[in-house]
């Protein structure tokens, strides 16, 4: 499964589109990253990297994040 691009993940974190049908870990992870970026927008690149690492470790999540 190809990984989503960093720019796609950045867009996802900055959006309010929810992966309602994704596994629980994907939903909570994305929700947490959005909160952290909302509280401190300078963290966006670090949080994109964190989400990329999560997708790399979890093929199902990579697929879900690519299709939100």
């Amino acid at each position: 499964m190809p990984l989503p691009s960093p720019s796609a993940l950045k867009t996802l974190i900055l959006s309010d589109r929810n992966p309602d049908k994704a596994q629980l870990s994907t939903r909570i992870m994305l929700g947490r990253l959005r909160i952290e970026v909302r509280n401190n927008p300078t963290l966006i690149d670090a949080k994109v990297a964190e989400l990329m690492e999560f997708a790399r470790a979890n093929a199902c999540a990579a697929d879900e994040l690519a299709h939100i």
């Binding site: 929810n18 992966p19 929700g31 959005r34």
Partner: peptide
């Protein structure tokens, strides 16, 4: 209740 990416916590 808070919404974490669609999960209600």
């Amino acid at each position: 209740m808070a919404n974490y990416g669609g999960a209600l916590i």
